[in-house]
C-alpha cells in the first residue's frame, strides 16, 4: 500500500462510520439553522441590504466555525472506544495518513453542511452578491480546510487533556484568527463587491500550506508521544 491508499482507507472508514450514525452532520445542520434564525433576530435583513451584505460573511463563518466544533469534538471521541487509538499507534501505517484521512472526512462533512447553509443564508437574508459569486467556490473550500485541518489536529491534541470539549475552541480560535480574518474579508468583499478578494484568497492559500505542513509533520509526535 502506498501513502494515498492509507489516506483513502482512513477516509472511507470515517465516511462509513458517519453515514451509519449521521450524528455529526445532523447536529451541524440543525445548529447552523438555529444560528441563522437567531442572527436574523439581531438585525432586519430586508430593510438594510447593504448592512446585511457587509456582515453576512462574518455571520456565515461564525456559524460554520461553531458547527464544525461539533463534528471535530466527536471525530476523535470514537477512536477512544475499544482502544482503537492504540491500534492506530501499533499499526505500521504512517500516522499522518490517519490525520489526513480524518481531516478530509471532516472537510467533507462540513462542506456538506455549507452546501445547505449557504442557500439558507441567501434565502433568509435576501443576499444578492455584488461581486464575482463564483469566487465563493474558491473561498469556501479554502476557508473550510483552514478550520477543519487545524481543528482535527487540535482535537487530537486535546484528547490528552481533561475537559476536552472546552479546550478545543480555546486553543483553536487564536490560532485560526488570521485564517478567519482572511475568509471573512474574502467573503464580504465578494458579497459587497467593494474590493478584490484576491489578496485574502492568497493569504488563505498560504495559511493552509503552512499549517497543513506543520500538522502533517507534528501529528506523528502527537499520536505516539507518551
Amino acid at each position: 500500500m502506498n501513502y494515498a491508499d492509507y489516506v483513502l482507507a482512513h477516509f472511507a472508514k470515517e465516511v462509513r462510520l458517519e453515514w451509519r450514525a449521521r450524528d455529526a452532520i445532523n447536529g451541524m445542520l440543525f445548529f447552523t439553522l438555529l444560528v441563522v434564525v437567531v442572527f436574523a433576530m439581531a438585525f432586519d435583513p430586508a430593510s438594510y441590504p447593504t448592512i446585511t451584505r457587509q456582515i453576512s460573511g462574518g455571520l456565515l463563518w461564525v456559524a460554520v466555525l461553531f458547527a464544525s466544533m461539533n463534528a471535530l469534538n466527536q471525530s476523535w471521541a470514537r477512536e477512544l472506544k475499544n482502544s482503537v487509538l492504540d491500534a492506530h499507534r501499533l499499526a505500521p501505517a504512517p500516522p499522518s495518513a490517519l490525520f489526513l484521512g480524518k481531516a478530509l472526512a471532516n472537510f467533507l462533512f462540513v462542506t456538506a453542511t455549507e452546501m445547505v447553509l449557504a442557500p439558507v443564508f441567501v434565502v433568509f437574508y435576501n443576499l444578492h452578491p455584488l461581486g464575482q459569486t463564483w469566487l465563493l467556490l474558491v473561498v469556501l473550500p479554502l476557508g473550510t480546510w483552514a478550520l477543519v485541518g487545524n481543528g482535527t489536529f487540535f482535537a487530537a491534541l486535546s484528547l490528552r487533556t481533561r475537559n476536552r470539549e472546552l479546550l478545543l475552541p480555546l486553543i483553536l480560535f487564536p490560532i485560526s484568527l488570521p485564517a478567519l480574518l482572511a475568509m471573512i474579508q474574502a467573503t464580504t468583499s465578494i458579497l459587497t463587491g467593494d474590493a478584490s478578494p484576491m489578496l485574502w484568497i492568497k493569504v488563505l492559500f498560504a495559511y493552509n500550506i503552512v499549517f497543513t505542513t506543520a500538522c502533517l509533520m507534528l501529528f506523528g509526535f502527537v499520536l505516539q508521544g507518551e
Partner: peptide, 29 residues
C-alpha cells in the same frame, strides 16, 4: 493565554508534550 490554559488542562505527564506542539503553532501564527 490559550497556551497556559492548555498546560493547566493537560493530564499529568502529557503537559509538556501537548504544550510544545501548541507553542510551535503559536510561533508560526
Amino acid at each position: 493565554v490559550s497556551y497556559m490554559m492548555l498546560r493547566s488542562f493537560a493530564a499529568g505527564g502529557q503537559t509538556a508534550m501537548v504544550a510544545s506542539v501548541l507553542g510551535v503553532f503559536a510561533a508560526i501564527d
